[in-house]
Simulated scan of single mutants.
Amino acid sequence: MITTQLLILITVFLIASVISVITGSTSLITVPVMLQFRIEPRTALATNMLALTLMSVGGTLPFIGKGVIDRRRLPLLIVLTLIASIVGALLVLVVPSRSMPLIISISMIVVTVLSIANRKAGIVPAEAIPSRIAEIAGYVVTFILGIYGGFFSGGYVTLLTAAYVMLFRMTFVQAIATTKLINIFSSLVATIIFMIQGIIDYKLGMILGLTMFVGGIIGGRITLSLSTIWLQRIYLTVVSILTIVTLRKSLQPNQSTSTTGELTPLV
């Protein structure tokens, strides 16, 4: 029998997946909600990663054949992401996640400031080819963020989108489409490792995953229908809000009940 808690989770995951195709930061919304229902932290991270994999697939489908995915850089970006995601997923097993909200919020503040300072970035294709330093930096950032993406993923795509706009000179649509495809590999590798460790709630994960798959398709189609100016506005607005909320939570005293609770059956 479907419970009220499960209905709430389905609703939150659907809305978050539609919006996060543009903005990223899905896990900054979904994981805290799961923890509120006293789902054990590692189980929440692992189950959320399974759902994210399906969302990334759904979010990528609308962009296929539209010519907005950076095919030239894609092979190397995928290889770097696969390696980094393995490292990140293994870190979940040994590293406490208490400091993550502060790191995320600081990173997102930097992204917000840089995005506002470079408002033209991502709106129109850059006339100049990225410098060699910027190109190399883009690959280095892909690897570093890939480690974080395999660990938690909250804010991963958001930061990756900003990096590709600023370093690779992509438009917002190109960055969104490319990061969605890359995130399939990041989430999938982490999910496989979590499967091996036996910390995924498969029943809940598949329900939420199918929900996010549908949300990803809807979000992808909305993205293609919007102008790059509106994509930038939505991106900056949501990122700013999430930055404030995440920073506020990171500065609050740790509450053991939100990170040590036992798994409560939802179905």
Rank of each mutant, 00 (worst) to 15 (best):
R73S: 14
F13L: 01
I10F: 13
G65Q: 11
L76C: 10
I78D: 09
S20K: 02
D70M: 12
L52C: 10
N48F: 00
G88D: 11
I10R: 06
L93K: 14
S27C: 11
L54K: 04
G59E: 01
A16H: 04
S27L: 08
L52W: 04
A44G: 05
N48L: 01
L45P: 04
T47P: 05
L90M: 12
L61R: 02
I69N: 06
R73Q: 12
P41F: 08
P75T: 04
V87S: 11
I69G: 02
L35I: 08
R73L: 13
A84Y: 09
G58S: 09
G88S: 03
V31H: 08
I8D: 04
R73V: 07
G24W: 05
I15Y: 04
A16E: 09
L93Q: 13
L61G: 04
Q5D: 14
T47C: 06
P62Y: 00
S17I: 01
V57E: 02
T60K: 08
T26G: 07
E40M: 11
I8H: 08
P62N: 00
Q5V: 07
A16D: 07
I64P: 09
L45I: 14
F37N: 01
V87D: 11
L52S: 06
V12N: 04
I64D: 06
P75G: 02
S27M: 13
T30K: 03
A16L: 02
T47M: 05
I39P: 05
Q5F: 07
G67F: 02
R38Q: 15
R73G: 15
S56Q: 11
S17D: 01
T53Y: 11
P62S: 05
M55P: 05
R38M: 10
P32H: 03
M49S: 06
L50V: 03
I8F: 10
F37M: 02
L14T: 10
S20L: 00
A84V: 11
L54P: 00
S85H: 06
I29K: 04
L76Q: 12
E40D: 12
V92I: 11
G67E: 04
L9C: 08
L54V: 03
V94S: 13
D70F: 08
P32Y: 10
M34R: 00
G59Q: 01
R42N: 14
S25L: 09
R98C: 06
V95I: 10
T47S: 04
M34T: 01
L93G: 13
T11Q: 05
P41C: 09
T11L: 05
G59Y: 02
F63Y: 14
I78V: 15
R71V: 11
V57H: 04
P75L: 05
L90Y: 15
G88H: 11
I64R: 07
R38D: 15
M34C: 01
T11C: 12
G65L: 07
V87N: 12
A84M: 08
G24F: 02
S85Y: 13
T23V: 15
A51K: 03
P75I: 08
A46P: 03
S20F: 03
V87H: 14
V94I: 15
A46V: 07
E40Y: 11
V95S: 10
P96H: 11
L52M: 13
